[in-house]
C-alpha cells in the first residue's frame, strides 16, 4: 500500500520535473500527460474513483489537447536559442525560492502531530451518493460551474479568434 504510493510519487514528481526542465515544448506536454495520469492513479489509489476518471477525462484528455494545440499554433522557427545570463540568474533565484518553500512545507508536514496515524478502511463513496450530493446541497455551485464553463469557453473563442476577418461574401 505504502510502496505503491511511493512508486506513484516517484512517477509523478519525476515526470513533472523532467517535463518542466526540457527545452522541447512537445516533449514537455507529453511528459505532463504522464504526470497527470500518475495523479489520476493516485486518486484511484486513495479510493476516489470518480475523481480519478474526471482527472483522466479533463486533464489527460482535454487540457493536454488544448496545450498541444497552443504549442503547435505558437511554434517558432528556432526553438532552441542559447540560455542567457539573465535566465540562468532567474533560474537560480527561482530554485532558491522554491527550495525555501519546499523546506518550510516539508518541515511543517513532518513536524505536525497528525492525529490520524492508523488508516481506516477505504471509504466507499458511490457515484450515486456523489450525484445526490451534487444535486442536493451543492446544486447552486453546480449551476455556477456550468455558467462559468460556458462563459470561459465563449471568452476563449472571442480571445483567440482572428479580428477583421473578411468572409468571401463581403468582397463580392
Amino acid at each position: 500500500m505504502t510502496l505503491a504510493l511511493i512508486l506513484l510519487s516517484v512517477l509523478i514528481l519525476g515526470s513533472a520535473i523532467v517535463a518542466l526542465s526540457l527545452r522541447n515544448l512537445i516533449h514537455s506536454a507529453l511528459l505532463l500527460v504522464a504526470c497527470w495520469a500518475g495523479i489520476a492513479a493516485f486518486y484511484l489509489w486513495a479510493g476516489a474513483e470518480f475523481v480519478a476518471f474526471a482527472q483522466g477525462l479533463v486533464y489527460v484528455g482535454a487540457i493536454s489537447m488544448v496545450v498541444l494545440f497552443a504549442v503547435l499554433l505558437t511554434r517558432q522557427g528556432t526553438a532552441s536559442e542559447p540560455l542567457g545570463f539573465a535566465s540562468w540568474q532567474r533560474f537560480i533565484l527561482a530554485l532558491v525560492a522554491g527550495g525555501g518553500v519546499a523546506g518550510i512545507l516539508v518541515g511543517a508536514v513532518l513536524g505536525t502531530p497528525l492525529t490520524v496515524t492508523t488508516p481506516g478502511p477505504v471509504p466507499v463513496l458511490t457515484v450515486k451518493q456523489i450525484g445526490a450530493q451534487l444535486m442536493g446541497p451543492h446544486v447552486v455551485a453546480l449551476l455556477v460551474v456550468g455558467i462559468l464553463l460556458t462563459v470561459s469557453l465563449l471568452g476563449a473563442v472571442v480571445l483567440a479568434a482572428e479580428e477583421n476577418v473578411k468572409s468571401p461574401e463581403d468582397e463580392v
Binding site: 500500500m1 505504502t2 504510493l5 511511493i6 506513484l8 510519487s9 509523478i12 514528481l13 513533472a16 520535473i17 518542466l20 493516485f42 486513495a46 527561482a94 530554485l95 525560492a97 522554491g98 527550495g99 518553500v101 519546499a102 512545507l105 516539508v106 508536514v109 513532518l110 497528525l114 490520524v116 488508516p119
Partner: peptide, 18 residues
C-alpha cells in the same frame, strides 16, 4: 500515508512554483 501524501503534494507544488 497521510504524511506521504502531503509530502508528495508539497513537492509537486514547489516543482510547479519553480
Amino acid at each position: 500515508p497521510l504524511q506521504l501524501c502531503l509530502l508528495l503534494s508539497s513537492l509537486l507544488f514547489c516543482v510547479g512554483l519553480v
